[in-house]
């Protein structure tokens, strides 16, 4: 049997809200070490990679590896039936064709149970190589969300340039052009408010704003986001999930024809 009880159930709600517009169906890989998911959007331009380690659940039981194919829109609808402070348990019997979701109120006086039919998903898995990135930018996730939203009024692409001075986002469109430049923070009250650029070498890449906008829906998961860039490789956008794992997005760049 597979059973994973998540005391902070709202983490799962935020996760699914963050990926449901990008990916329709996904296989949740359940292993003794934890739960993971890898899925591409339908145009194979972006990829979602989720990891939730077993020690983030309480308790976590996984006797054998299981793949749970789940329609994320259905899952998102079901999760809307839970309250933000509910404890959420995911369970799957060994011979079952469904995943069971249990929502438990903090005082345990309300318990709801939903049985979700599993779906067969033929999903192509990719090997993501370890990469030494040219530049790693860390910033508040709300700032990332704001910049992506602001750039979208200008066009459908953004060029992100990292240098020793900081990071610059710029967009061009029919109505005009604009940019936002963030300097590395010198002194901030909280580390979560800081902008840092860890630079091996200056790099500039262009990306579709539509995908960055979808990624930015993960902002409620974490106060900070990390963007990792290298010349001519996919961008890595990472949100940490409390102390238990991460939600990563990869986005192929736009390249010169």
């Amino acid at each position: 049997m597979f059973e994973a009880r998540l005391p902070q159930g709202q983490i799962l709600k935020k996760l699914i809200e963050a990926v449901r517009e990008l990916v329709t169906d996904a296989n949740f890989e359940c292993k003794p070490s934890g739960l993971s998911l890898q899925a591409m959007d339908s145009s194979h331009v972006s990829l979602v990679s989720l990891l939730m380690r077993a020690d983030g659940f309480d308790p976590y039981q996984c006797d054998r590896n299981r793949t749970l194919g789940i329609n994320l829109r259905t899952l998102a609808s079901v999760l809307k039936c839970s309250s933000n402070d509910d404890i959420i348990t995911i369970r799957a019997e060994d011979d079952g064709d469904s995943a069971i979701l249990i929502f438990e109120s903090p005082s345990s006086d309300r318990l709801s149970e939903f049985d979700l039919k599993l779906v067969d998903i033929d999903n192509e898995q990719l090997v993501i190589p370890d990469t030494q990135y040219d530049a790693v930018v860390r910033m508040p996730s709300a700032e990332f969300q704001r910049i992506v939203r602001d750039m979208q009024i200008l066009g459908d692409s953004v060029t992100i340039a990292c240098s020793k001075d900081g990071v610059k986002f710029s967009a061009n469109g029919e109505i005009g052009s604009g940019s936002v430049r963030l300097k590395q923070s010198s002194a901030v009250d909280s580390e979560d408010d800081a902008v840092t650029v860890d630079l091996q070498q200056a790099v500039s890449l262009t990306f579709a704003l539509r995908y960055l906008s979808l990624f930015s829906k993960a902002a409620p998961l974490s106060p900070t986001v990390t963007l990792s860039f290298s010349k001519d490789v996919p961008l890595l956008v990472e949100f940490r999930i409390a102390d238990m794992g991460h939600l990563r997005f990869y986005l192929a760049p736009k390249i010169d024809e």
Partner: peptide
Amino acid sequence: AKKQATLGAFFKPK
């Protein structure tokens, strides 16, 4: 003009 690349150009299938 720039063209959108796909992930298959960078990551190999498992």
